[in-house]
Design a protein around this nucleic acid. Structure first.
Length: 487
DNA sequence: ATGTGC
């Protein structure tokens, strides 16, 4: 067994199975850690991910270590699959360490249907979903909101959806934070961002965003699966999307403002894409408030899409959503920074926990876990590709000690979008999925299907195996796609 | 990810 490996001039020391550490040297303010198998590490070491991880340790107030999850790959400044916790009094907050698509995330809805109820009707289902849920760039939203609507959504999150007939009380109680971030400050969201949001309430977007009907194929932990209401052959729906142009605009706005407003901090960082506002500064407060507003917007976006999905199922299966028991299992955020209290060296500290392409994974007992799941741990939903299926996990016992209560968020790309389009042809990918796997895909553009072909992703099984072995997120169930709509 | 931008 090797104890040390090197990628692109960066040396990693093996601490234990699946834990690799980069020693603190030079201007680094902490060590860095990668959670990966040797195979996943070799993929992570293939691009600039490790250098970005080292760069992240230069951020003021970074606590314990910067972390790269097993699905990590390079992103804007900070790795996708990265976790960085910075003190809220003497640390900083960085838009690049949250990501452009603020509260990009995934939610899963249960049904009481079985795969046999859907078999043979996949095409009708996928066509109606595609017609009813706007997707792709542009394309508009389910609701064409005015300025007042957008501001209410930014302020109230899913409470707005409840008041306007798009949600049930149970939806809110089964969402992270009850679907509402009270720290939202719409006054710090630009007019331009609000304008973009008005036309996008209830829209899937493009890229890796999708809605997928799936069937449960495997159960690994019977007691937790029961608490999550999951059983073999059950039909579930996965919705993956974010805050669309609104969140993107907020990120762009604040990257620029922070670059200009805090040049001294910027000069001390190895990459200007990490631009950060010092904790306590006006820009830190403004960005945090705007980002929380975008979090609320993304939750409403997924909620409205879920509402549309309920209507389509009601129509196709000729029963009400209530009769079909179409209930929200959970909703997880992939791109956020959040004030959380963590115990560091025996002391409770409030930190901006940045999770970019990483998921919260709180174990049983944490007060933030919804009551329904508090004795088993929060649900974690990890989407794989269209050809491999997805996983449901629960927050693991070791997550607070190892990863500030976080785990991976997906399979992670192994290939750029440009490379994917050279290697795959959308129609061929679609036909193969339908003929060999009985997966029905409908997309706005063939290019998107090529960019999201199963072959562009890492092995989701291995990502999840690492999470489970480390005890940061434990596998509960596995699903396989039935049909999928995307931009 | 994204009305794919200085």
């Amino acid at each position: 067994m090797t104890d040390t490996v090197e990628y692109n001039g960066i040396t990693l020391h093996k601490q234990s199975e699946y834990v690799w550490e980069i020693t603190q040297t030079g201007e680094m303010r902490s060590p860095a850690r990668v959670f990966a198998s040797e195979k996943l590490l070799s993929e992570i070491g293939d691009d600039d991910t490790l250098q970005q991880l080292v760069n992240a340790t230069h951020l003021p107030g970074i606590t314990k270590y910067a972390i790269c999850m097993p699905d990590g790959h390079q992103g804007y400044g900070f790795p996708v699959g990265g976790v960085g916790a910075m003190d809220t009094t003497d640390g900083c907050i960085s838009p690049g360490a949250v990501g452009f698509d603020i509260n990009c995330g995934v939610r899963m809805m249960r049904t009481n249907l079985s795969y046999s109820d859907v078999e043979g009707r996949e095409k009708a289902l996928v066509n109606r979903l595609f017609e009813t849920i706007p997707s792709g760039l542009g394309g508009g939203g389910v609701i064409s909101g005015d300025r007042k609507t957008v501001e209410a959504i930014l302020t109230d999150g899913m409470k707005w959806a409840l008041a306007n007939g798009y949600a049930t009380p149970d939806d809110l109680s089964h969402c992270e934070d009850g679907g509402w971030r009270p720290d939202a400050a719409p006054e710090h969201v630009s007019e331009k961002a609000k304008n973009r949001g008005e036309k996008q309430i209830g829209s899937l977007g493009s890229g890796n965003h999708f809605l997928e009907v799936q069937r449960v194929t495997d159960i690994y932990r019977d007691d937790v699966a029961a608490a999550f209401g999951l059983q073999p052959e059950q039909i579930v729906v996965l919705i993956h999307c974010g805050s669309r142009g609104l969140g993107h605009q907020i990120c762009s706005d604040y990257v620029r403002k922070i670059e200009k407003g805090h040049p001294e901090l910027l000069a001390a960082l190895p990459d200007k894409e990490l631009a950060a506002a010092p904790a306590g500064s006006e820009l830190a407060t403004a960005y945090y408030g705007a980002m929380c507003a975008a979090i609320n917007f993304a939750w409403v976006n997924r909620q409205v899409i879920m509402h549309q999905t309920r209507q389509v199922f009601a129509e196709i299966f000729d029963q009400s959503p209530q009769a079909l028991e179409m209930e929200l299992l959970y909703d997880v955020a992939h791109n956020i920074a959040k004030k959380e209290v963590h115990t560091v060296n025996g002391r409770d500290r409030e930190l901006y926990v940045h999770r970019k392409g990483a998921t919260r994974a709180f174990p049983a007992g944490r007060k933030e876990v919804p009551e329904a799941y508090r004795t088993v741990g929060q649900p974690i939903i990890i989407p794989g590709s269209m050809g491999t299926g997805s996983y449901i996990l629960r927050g693991g016992e070791n997550s607070l000690a190892l990863s500030f209560g976080s785990t991976a968020h997906g399979a992670g790309r192994v290939m750029s979008r440009t490379q994917a389009k050279k290697q795959f042809w959308g129609e061929t990918v679609r036909d193969e999925l339908e003929e060999t796997q009985h997966v029905y895909v409908k997309a706005q553009s063939g290019a998107t299907v090529a960019e999201e072909a199963p072959g562009v992703y890492k092995d989701v099984d291995e990502v999840v195996r690492v999470s489970d072995a480390l005890g940061i997120g434990d596998t509960v169930a596995r699903t396989f796609p039935v049909c999928n709509i995307k931009g």
